[in-house]
Amino acid sequence: MHEGAIAESIVDILKQVMDDNNLKRIVRVRLKIGKMSGVMIDALLFALEALRSEEDVISQTAFDIVETDVKAKCNICGEFYEYSDVSEVVMLCKKCGMPLDIIEGKEMEIVDVEGE
């Protein structure tokens, strides 16, 4: 379960954000996780919950996770594809048969935080 390592990276970045912005506590964090990032949301929330007791920075923090669909585009004909189910993803253009470029769905990002 690599979500433990991801949760630790989130905590490290949040500590930096707290220092940089003179925050005493962080109450809310918005995360953007692509469906093709390889991260299981439930496992990530579980890992963050497990870290809560040992990491003061997230002791009172709520995590909002925005899960993004996989979006891909054909660079040849411009056709756009969106997949909400990763097992359905086909990286070939149905119109012209060329490989697609993923434009969204692999990201793992801290979008913003609320604190005081």
Binding site: S9, I13, L23, I110
Partner: peptide, 15 residues
Amino acid sequence: MKRVVVEKKILERND
């Protein structure tokens, strides 16, 4: 309450 835009990759350090 203050909102801070972070827009950082979680695995930035790894990358």
